[in-house]
Design a protein around this nucleic acid. Structure first.
Length: 885
RNA sequence: GGGCGAUUAGCUCAGGGGAAGAGCGCUACGCUCACAUCGUAGAGGUCGCUGGUUCAAAUCCAGCAUCGCCCACCA
């Protein structure tokens, strides 16, 4: 009891042990519950490609805070966990593994490859779950799902087929983004644009049957091999005479019509544009408008095709170099200039993507977007912070069709089947029997798989076994809160809203909380290539999960990015240690008796007791209000300040006298209140730092108490707020601090018990000080504390004025007069400054007339106080000065 | 070209119309029987700039500057 509790909190075995215990108790599991309200969060499923990074730790800490808080409030709280099969990312990793053995995926074949990917995914999945557990995440593991598991695959097929039947899924030959390294098409959102220093080449295209030529500008000369027209603006008077004429493409001598199209900006370059329908999205549109030929000159492997004539087989960038050289040699290059442009890169492998025409599957987005815009703007779904609504709206209003097919092996196969004998296509939930057209029975399934986000966007309901109508869906859907980062607002958040409305006819979640991004200490994104990442598991190892969680929340503000340095985790570690030691203190006082949990009778409460209980009520109220608004940092900060700055610094210090005295009743009362406040503080902290709070709770709990994680969350009791106690304590604190400051500044050693005289003018205050003189004596370390109504300043004493009371600290030895003069002088200056401000305000008639009465009244009080204090300070200053002479 | 953030103490950041805050760092003192992963006290900010609204602006509005993100079909 007390003796075997270590001085320094050691989270070592505590965290794993408690997590296992919670799991054994089945505390994480949630079920539809007739007489309880539900609260549900679906996890943003981490990709199975890698270990979790600090961003995950942060994101999941927030989710766990919300879930634990709601669970303790009595909600049936479900945190639905799972992982994402991460199509391209996983395929890339597995291919990389294969490459170590010198093999490509084609060497092992599709079936074997998918098998390998499954193995990989399963291992990673297990690691991720393990990591989430290490962080304390209270997920309902019984319900864990995977975007590629059987149930979710059914949902995906179901959705694809029904969208197809509605005409919202279609197949088209269209210009798309091709990643030559991943050898698949990717969606517009998967292309990252980066500013690159490049060149703008001006190339001469001779006019047919003329010595004249025209000049076009391009950043990608190699695409000219696929040019099928030259375009000018219809408004450009300079070039109207050329429209209808024919230009000749250098090198390959293809004849190109000169056309006019509103897309062309006369201001840019020469005002003439080469048109390459097969390799540029704009040119593609133009080409379709004008019925131009589409000539593919860059192949899927990024090498030039046969159509590129002499350059066939050459890599696209090599071709660019060679072609520019050739043009120059042959006199076709007019000039080139440095040019900064935005180049699209694959978000998975960072290769420069190539726009290319290809037959792909698309989802028509406009009809899905409209209702989804509505629910965010009418407040059915609320974004925190709100600023993201604008971003959301902008994207949604300009939404383009979603390219969902991928030329990968790892993913949901598209449920389209082709009759082997006549080629007829059928989209169906399972392979068709006989072909309607030819009666054939042999079918080949579409080789393509679906974009990984095509399963993610169903996550809020597919995880609850949709399209089956389950009790879970009935009870937990719509879910309550989505916690995610803003970088997937389009990939995921927006699409989930669309899917929810389309398939469930209901929003998927009520609130979206966007957490900030974790950056390094210099504000750079953490990334593998920079090597500036901080591994959360290592930090857990080093500082504990509680410390990691606590520190991250301390550093966070709603939606702002966090700059993180490793030392920052000391914040959480130190806090845990403080908490631990406050418990140790309480534990040491209880001696042999059982822990008192009931508050003592009111008549046994001292001022300090009334004060701390009152403060606690406010803290509980503020904490809950803050979390309601997703102000997580604010909730944390409120408890932090209360626990450290009030409970430890003042309350525990104040009650020590009762423990070290011989009044057993007083000591018992103090102990019960200390335990009571500590226990509620632990509960407030539990969502943030679940382990240490449970650990301490276990030490303090009675037999029939619930464990902290399933205990009832504190509620504020307004009957216990006590303005009187708070203002009285504030006065005593001011007096104590004033004495301490004086002692410190006059070099009175902390160990020396001093004697102090207060010259008070107001009776109420004199009584207050008299009744609570022990507070002052104990906390300012005094041997004598006299409260007088009208005494002169004793010889050689330091003085301070606080709340219109003079405080004298007689200094037995020689007082350093110079130093005391300096002190008083500074005080006088400060007070004068404050008085001046108050005077200025009050002499402003507008202020007196227009400001609210209580503000004016407050200002008057300030003025009076400062005047009074100033008088006393000046008198004392003169006294000291006269001694000096 | 649009949109969004940031700009407050040496550093990292809270706050958000009525007397400038925290943590770290720094200075002084203290191992006083919960805690040196600690305590007590202190030094340190004309709250980016310029205007405006208001009795009152760090806080609201407008413009500007610097930095950083996001979006956009100018080759």
């Amino acid at each position: 009891m007390g003796k075997d509790i270590p001085k320094v909190y050691d989270p070592g075995q505590v965290e794993d042990r408690l997590y296992e215990y919670w799991e054994e108790q089945n505390y994480f599991h949630a079920e539809p519950h007739a007489d309880r309200e539900s609260y549900c969060i679906v996890i943003p499923p981490p990709n199975v490609t890698a270990v979790l990074h600090m961003g995950h730790a942060y994101n999941n800490a927030i989710q766990d805070i919300l879930i634990r808080w709601r669970r303790m409030q009595g909600y049936e709280a479900l945190w639905m966990p799972g992982t994402d099969h991460a199509g391209i990312a996983t395929q890339n990793v597995v291919e990389k593994e294969l490459l170590k053995e010198g093999k490509t995926r084609h060497d092992v074949g599709r079936e074997k490859f998918v098998e390998l990917a499954w193995d990989w995914a399963e291992n990673r999945r297990a690691d991720i779950v393990n990591q989430l557990k290490k962080l304390g995440s209270s997920c309902d593991w019984e319900r864990e799902r995977f975007t590629f598991d059987e149930g979710l695959s059914d949902a995906v097929t179901h959705v694809f087929v029904s969208l197809y039947e509605k005409g919202l899924v279609y197949r088209d030959n269209y210009i798309v983004n091709w990643c030559p390294r991943c050898s698949t098409v990717i969606s517009d959102e998967e292309v990252e644009h980066e500013t690159k220093q490049g060149k703008l080449w001006y190339i001469r295209y001779p006019l047919k049957d003329s010595d004249d030529y025209l000049v076009v500008a391009t950043t990608r000369p190699e695409t000219m091999l696929g040019d099928t027209a030259v375009a000018v603006s219809p408004d450009d008077e300079r070039y109207q005479h050329l429209v209808g004429k024919t230009a000749v493409l250098p090198i390959v001598n293809r004849e190109l019509p000169v056309i006019k199209d509103a897309f062309v900006d006369p201001e840019f370059g020469t005002g003439m544009v080469k048109v390459t329908p097969a390799h540029d999205p704009n040119d593609f549109e133009m080409g379709r408008r004008h019925g131009l030929e589409e000539i593919k000159v860059i192949g899927d492997d990024a090498a030039m095709t046969e159509a590129a004539g002499p350059y066939a087989g050459m890599d696209r960038f090599e071709c660019r170099k060679q072609l520019v050289r050739d043009l120059e040699e042959q006199g076709y290059l007019e000039k080139s200039e440095d040019y900064e442009n935005r180049v699209g890169h694959c978000y998975r492998c960072h290769t420069i993507v190539e726009p290319a025409i290809s037959e792909q599957w698309f989802v028509k987005m406009k009809p899905l977007a409209e209702p989804a815009i509505e629910v965010v703007n009418n407040g059915e779904i609320t974004f925190f912070p709100e600023k993201w609504v604008k971003t959301y709206n902008h994207w949604m209003q300009n939404i383009r069709d979603w390219c969902i097919s991928r030329q990968l092996w790892w993913g949901h196969r598209i449920p389209a089947y082709y009759c082997e004998s006549c080629g007829t296509m059928q989209v169906a939930r399972s392979q068709p029997d006989t072909c309607d057209e030819c009666g054939g029975t042999e079918w080949t399934q579409d080789e393509n798989v679906l974009d990984t986000w095509f399963s993610s966007w169903l996550w809020p309901f597919s995880t609850m076994d949709w399209p089956e109508q389950t009790p879970e869906l009935e009870y937990f859907y719509p879910t309550d809160t989505l916690v995610t980062a803003q970088d997937i607002i389009f990939f995921w958040v927006a699409r989930m809203i669309m899917a929810g409305l389309e398939f469930m006819d209901e929003i998927p979640f009520k609130n979206v909380y966007f957490n900030g991004i974790i950056r390094d200490a210099q504000g750079r994104k953490m990334s593998k290539s920079l090597g500036n990442g901080i591994d959360p598991l290592e930090m857990v190892e080093q500082y504990s999960a509680d410390a990691v969680r606590y520190s991250l929340i301390v550093l966070s503000t709603e939606g702002q990015d966090i700059n993180l340095a490793e030392e920052n985790f000391e914040i959480g570690r130190n806090f845990s240690n403080k908490l631990w030691n406050s418990f140790r203190f309480v534990e040491m006082q209880r001696k042999e008796q059982a822990i008192p949990h009931e508050l003592p009778d009111h008549d046994r409460w001292e001022l300090a007791d009334r004060w701390i209980i009152s403060r606690l009520q406010r803290v509980i109220r503020q904490y809950n209000a803050a979390l309601e608004k997703f102000r997580i940092h604010e909730a944390q900060d409120t408890v932090h300040k209360f626990f450290w700055g009030e409970f430890c610094d003042w309350y525990l210090e104040l009650i020590k006298a009762r423990f070290y005295g011989d009044n057993e009743q007083a000591s018992e009362a103090a102990l019960s209140i200390a335990v009571n406040v500590l226990r509620q503080t632990l509960q407030l902290l539990h969502p943030i730092i679940p382990f240490i709070t449970e650990e301490i709770w276990q030490h303090l709990k009675l037999e029939d108490d619930p464990d902290i994680m399933v205990s009832r969350f504190p509620e504020s009791d307004s009957a216990l707020t006590d303005e009187d106690a708070e203002s009285k304590m504030a006065l005593l604190q001011d007096v104590i601090v004033a004495i301490r400051t004086m002692r410190s500044e006059m070099n009175v050693p902390p160990s020396k018990r001093a004697s102090v005289i207060v010259n008070s003018v107001k009776n109420g205050r004199a009584d207050l000080l008299r009744i609570h003189s022990s507070y002052v004596m104990n906390l300012a370390n005094l041997s004598d504390f006299a409260i007088e109504s009208n005494v002169d300043q004793p010889e050689s004493s330091a003085t301070a004025v606080v709340r219109e009371m003079e405080i004298f600290l007689p200094l037995a030895d020689l007082i350093d007069l110079r130093k005391e003069q300096e002190r008083l002088n500074k005080e006088i200056e400060d007070t004068e400054g404050r008085l001046q401000k108050a005077n200025a305000k009050l002499s402003n008639t507008d202020f007196v007339e227009k400001a609210p009465d209580h503000v004016v009244e407050k200002e008057r009080q300030k003025q009076a106080t400062y005047q009074e204090e100033l008088k006393k300070l000046q008198a004392n200053y003169e006294k000291i000065s006269s001694m000096d002479s």
